[in-house]
């Protein structure tokens, strides 16, 4: 049934965009907490300037994922909704605190410190919890009894696999965000901030790769079906590692301001590392098929009504043409316009 395949691919695409945007968003919150007291560097300002206009748009993506899931795969809603009640609710609570306090911290300068801590700490807790959805869908943590399903929380939180994913989520969040912020500071000409974020990326990059290896390693024991499948996608995994290697190496490529002692081409590093995640994500997602939740829910058993599917696709296409100019305008105003990225000294 190819329609279900289109639908899951679309969802995968939205998840991927959210994963990258959210990593940067959450990570930026974390960094702005870490560098809060370093007045002489502008590292915090850079993180905030990126964060302010972007979090709202990023947040819409998480709603978009939930809506896409229950619209395209209503048959998965029952299982996922039931099983994720507790972890989902905790994520919601943290997300609510974070978004609200992020906004408040812009308005109430005096309380900025305390508020920045809220957004910094939730900035790495949320990705850690969000990613727990993946080990849960890999099977083994759901107890089914007379038609009811229940998440085995105890088992989940004693499983090495869960911790591999958590470690991966946190390190990836910090890696991606430090790369983007390095690039952003570079564009802004904030070279102190650039040096700081570059150094962070250099430290965290290898850790995230190690965590990815750890995931594959634990998968072998805990979700062998997935491990077997993923071996079929070895070329994609190699491409992913190559993406990492290129991106990491780009941090030492010659810089425009070589004389001043700066190294690296952050734009290339950023793009290669996103490609790294794209390839790995594709391999993981393809290997996961046809299961949404192993072994109970597949993309076919959960699929929506075909009429609804077609109507939804029509709206996607229409919306694409309506919204794209908006996104481009947004991008130009906040990520390219030098007047925003690099305001005059005040």
């Amino acid at each position: 049934m190819p329609e279900a395949l289109y639908a899951i691919t679309l969802i995968w695409g939205v998840v991927f965009i959210y994963a990258v945007m959210a990593s940067i968003d959450f990570g930026a919150g974390f960094w702005s907490m870490i560098y809060l007291n370093k007045q002489q560097t502008r590292a915090t300002n850079i993180a905030n300037r990126y964060l302010s206009p972007s979090w709202e748009v990023t947040n819409v993506f998480i709603v978009a994922i939930v809506v896409a899931l229950f619209s395209f795969f209503p048959g998965a809603t029952f299982t996922l909704g039931t099983v994720l009640l507790i972890p989902g609710s905790i994520i919601l609570l943290l997300l609510a605190l974070r978004s609200a306090f992020l906004v408040f911290s812009h308005v109430a300068e005096e309380y900025k410190k305390g508020l920045t801590f809220v957004s910094g700490i939730t900035g790495f807790l949320i990705p850690a919890l969000l990613i727990s959805v993946l080990p849960i869908t890999q099977g083994g943590f759901i107890d089914s009894f007379d038609g009811n399903q229940e998440l085995l929380l105890g088992k989940l939180f004693t499983s090495p696999s869960e911790y591999a994913f958590v470690g991966f989520a946190i390190s990836s969040t910090l890696f991606l965000s430090s790369l983007l912020l390095a690039d952003y500071s570079n564009v802004a000409g904030e070279m102190d901030a650039y040096a700081i974020y570059r150094k962070d990326a250099i430290i965290i990059g290898p850790i995230s790769l190690l965590m990815a290896a750890f995931i594959i390693f634990t998968m072998r024991n805990e979700a062998n079906w997935l491990y077997e499948n993923i071996l079929n996608y070895t070329p994609w995994m190699i491409a992913s590692i190559a993406g990492f290697a290129l991106g990491y190496a780009a941090l030492w490529f010659p810089h425009r301001q070589k004389k001043a002692g700066f190294k690296g081409m952050p734009r290339i590093a950023m793009i290669s590392v996103v490609a790294q995640y794209l390839f790995a994500g594709y391999a993981y997602g393809s290997a996961h098929l046809p299961y949404i939740v192993y072994p109970d829910v597949t993309i076919e058993s959960g699929f929506t009504h075909p009429e609804t599917f077609r109507a939804l696709i029509v709206t996607y296409i229409v919306a694409f043409f309506i919204l794209t100019p908006g996104f481009i305008y947004f991008w130009r105003l906040f990520l390219k316009d030098k007047r925003y990225v690099k305001p005059k000294e005040s």
């Binding site: 229950f70 395209f72 209503p74 009504h305 609804t308 709206t315 996607y316 919306a319």
Partner: peptide
């Protein structure tokens, strides 16, 4: 909802 009235949520 997913099978029948997903449109408004999506839009």
């Amino acid at each position: 909802v997913g099978k029948v009235i997903a449109l408004p949520f999506q839009i």
